[in-house]
Design a protein around this nucleic acid. Structure first.
Length: 665
RNA sequence: GGUGAUGUAGCUCAGCUGGUUAGAGCGGCGGACUCAUAACCCGCAGGUCGGUGGUUCAAGCCCACCCAUCACCA
């Protein structure tokens, strides 16, 4: 009996654009789902746009449309982006749906019935001009703890203190800019604390990573507090039945949105209902897994199972938590150009399959962050995917075509080797199952290495000259093609496009459970390159373009703390020598006195400065910039200048008295 | 501040319940081959496994402290 599995990925929020971080999760989930389907499980994958909440309401207002219309346009954009990356949902719905409303109301009614809801009056910041209560993030002011300016209402980015918005010094609403007043409001609370022991039991029984368990244990230790599940109008969401002007908090209806998306997929009427019940009924034997980022573990491993337990429904079989994506070792940032959206990636002409492979190669089961390094990215695609894997088909195909009219031979030359490849299926499957895709990729690439070595040893190119050994030659290249076929089958969950191209080439389906049967005696299609190389230049250009756009919106640049800034070692330096660089019309080679041994820096300022007027001038130098090898030599730093480039470049210089080597801060 | 995670060759990472000379891929250098998308193959160089102290016959792996990085704090 095939496993029945329902999988979800975290709901992307309406107002956000899909970026490489969202894609990390979607790709992780999609690979798992595809693997399950390949290996014979009945696996369903649903998701939705998280439509509700204050940000959606305000954005819609800004754009002069209804929140429904706005959320729908976001959903369309989400669908488009995910499709481009080969994410194969069975349903991508929205949380603003009739199914979701019905489920939320039903669950809430049960929680009320069983006494898990109580009312409490709270004090909350209120913007009188905007006429609404303010979420913590909509109040800014001075941190009560360290005095840092312009901090959010919930925590300080400078000192890390957490507090209530009312504690901020000189608070103001980011909507009207006026100081908020405090108003009372009655909210509904969910008694999370009553579920502590049930949650602990659930945690033991369910599939959670060690890291996630640790985190939960930490929260249990702190004690579980009641959860505020309502918001005041105006709000975009579902109204609480029996109340006026009260809405369910977006985080209550979002996870229910998983169910609602599935309910929608099941179809209307009783048939739909019974299918739905097979997955969500209390005696369901279906597995239910949520893929999420570590930032929303609290919601998925505490609130969500507790709500389900409270409503007498089944709980998730597991919650799979992944880390964040960093780019070149740092958080994605608009100003660094590393906040890359799905659309940016595609616009740069990069193949989505490559990102899928790269993520797969680096993903493990834990919640460690994944770093996207551009050089590493290019290297892995070019050497692993193209140089190793695809190359196997490429180097064998020419023989099959020229010598045998694209027909494979009736036998393999080395059946034992083929068996070894088949024998890896189980282990690789386990790696997929446990989400250790990195290990799976390594195992596959190790086999690809073996295949390439084997072909080298067989030297098929020497046999072409010997008419008596044509059968042997055909058996060798037939084996090569078959080894490729096995590997493509293994990697198919990661590379849907390339593997379907491989299927077209092999004129046969890649079937996980049938790799032990080699493809013999069949005729195959003419070989066409399955994947091309990428150049580092394209990748770098992607970041550069983004950075350029970011510069245009300075006011939105992300705040950094003083330590971030101090990592940049700025020094006063004096230009000793400045000379044009032959072959580069924008560069000047500057020899600098930096207070130490001196150094050489290439600066793109030739369009604006004649070398002669620079000598003796003092500038500001980025002293700890990694040396960069250029065609003309190594640049050991950077001099600071303002402007867009070409002739519009303006060097910064210190006032009189500053000496080379002085730190700038 | 509290808590958690991470720190292994230039880069990305493996290293099972502690056990012989610490591994792979990429990059670098040298060589070989020519079937293949300058791909593939062989060889070489590169690490006091963040630091200090401890437990042990034996520690990258266990313990303590410290340092650095990242994250979370509903």
């Amino acid at each position: 009996m095939a496993r029945k599995i329902l999988v979800t990925a975290a709901l992307p929020y309406a107002s956000g654009q899909i970026h490489l971080g969202n894609l990390l999760e979607m790709v992780q989930t999609d690979i798992w789902v595809r693997y399950q389907r390949h290996s014979g499980a009945d696996c369903t994958f649903v998701c939705a746009t998280d439509a509700h909440g204050t940000p959606t309401m305000l954005k819609a207002r800004e754009e002069g449309v209804s929140p429904e219309e706005y959320a729908e346009s976001c959903r369309a954009a989400h669908v488009r982006d995910f499709e481009a990356f080969g994410i194969r949902f069975d349903n991508f719905y929205t949380t603003h749906s009739p199914e979701n409303r019905e489920l939320v109301e039903r669950i809430y009614a049960r929680l009320v019935e069983r006494g898990y809801i109580h009312a409490r009056t709270i004090q909350q910041a209120y913007d009188e001009e905007a006429g609404m209560f303010l979420p913590d993030r909509y109040v800014r002011g001075q941190c009560p703890s360290c005095g840092a300016e312009d901090q959010y209402g919930d925590s300080c980015t400078a000192c890390g203190a957490t507090y209530a918005p009312s504690e901020l010094v000189n608070p103001r609403s980011i909507l009207s800019g006026r100081p908020p007043v405090t108003r009372e409001s009655e909210h509904k609370f969910f008694k999370l604390g009553e579920f502590e022991s049930l949650l602990k039991t659930w945690m033991q029984a369910s599939n959670l990573d060690r890291g996630a368990r640790n985190k939960l244990a930490e929260w249990f230790k702190e004690g579980l507090k009641d959860w505020d599940i309502t918001r005041d109008e105006p709000y975009f969401g579902f109204e609480v039945p029996g109340e006026t002007g009260k809405y369910f908090y977006v985080w209550l209806d979002a996870p229910v949105g998983y169910m609602a998306s599935f309910r929608n997929l099941c179809g209307p009427g009783e048939d739909g209902d019974s299918r739905f019940q097979r997955y969500f009924g209390p005696d369901s034997d279906a597995e239910l897994y949520h893929f999420i980022g570590k930032d929303i573990l609290y919601f998925h491993a505490l609130f969500w199972p507790a709500v389900l337990l409270g409503a007498g429904m089944r709980t998730p079989s597991g919650v799979f938590v992944h880390g964040f994506l960093t780019v070149d070792g740092m958080k994605m940032s608009k100003s660094r150009g590393t906040f890359i959206t799905a659309a940016d990636y595609l616009a740069a002409g990069l193949d989505p399959e490559y990102l899928r492979y790269y993520y797969a190669a680096k993903l493990g089961s834990g919640l460690d962050d994944i770093d996207l390094q551009l050089d590493d990215f290019a290297a892995r695609i070019n050497s692993d995917l193209v140089g190793k894997l695809v190359n196997i088909a490429s180097r064998c195909a020419s023989f099959v075509q020229r010598g045998f009219g694209n027909r494979l031979g009736p036998r393999l030359h080395d059946p034992a080797l083929y068996e070894e490849f088949v024998a890896q299926r189980e282990q690789i499957g386990k790696h997929y199952e446990s989400r250790s895709y990195g290990k799976a990729m390594r195992a596959i690439m190790a086999l690809a290495d073996r295949a390439n070595v084997w072909i080298n040893e067989q030297k098929p190119w020497e046999l072409t000259k010997n008419p008596k050994r044509q059968d042997e030659l055909q058996a060798i290249v037939t084996q090569g093609i078959n080894l490729f076929r096995v590997l493509m089958t293994y990697i198919a969950p990661v590379l849907p496009q390339i593997s379907s191209k491989a299927e077209a080439f092999l004129r046969s389906e890649l079937n996980w459970n049938e790799v032990d049967e080699p493809l013999l005696g069949e005729s195959i299609a003419e070989f066409k390159p399955l994947a091309g190389r990428i150049s580092l230049k394209t990748l770098k250009a992607l970041v550069e373009t983004n950075r350029g756009q970011a510069a245009a919106e300075v006011e939105h640049s992300e705040p950094i703390d003083i330590d971030d800034f101090l990592r940049t070692d700025l020094r006063v330096a004096k230009i000793i020598k400045a000379e044009r660089v032959a072959g580069a019309n924008r560069l000047l080679r500057l020899t600098l006195d930096d207070g130490g041994k001196g150094r050489t820096v290439f600066a793109g300022i030739a369009g604006a400065y004649a070398p002669s007027i620079l000598v003796g001038r003092k500038v500001v130098l980025v002293a700890n910039l990694k040396p960069r090898k250029m065609r003309f030599g190594v640049s050991e730093g950077m001099v600071l200048a303002a402007g867009e480039g070409e002739s519009r470049v303006f060097l910064l210089s210190p006032d009189e008295g500053a000496e080379p080597g002085m730190r700038v801060r």
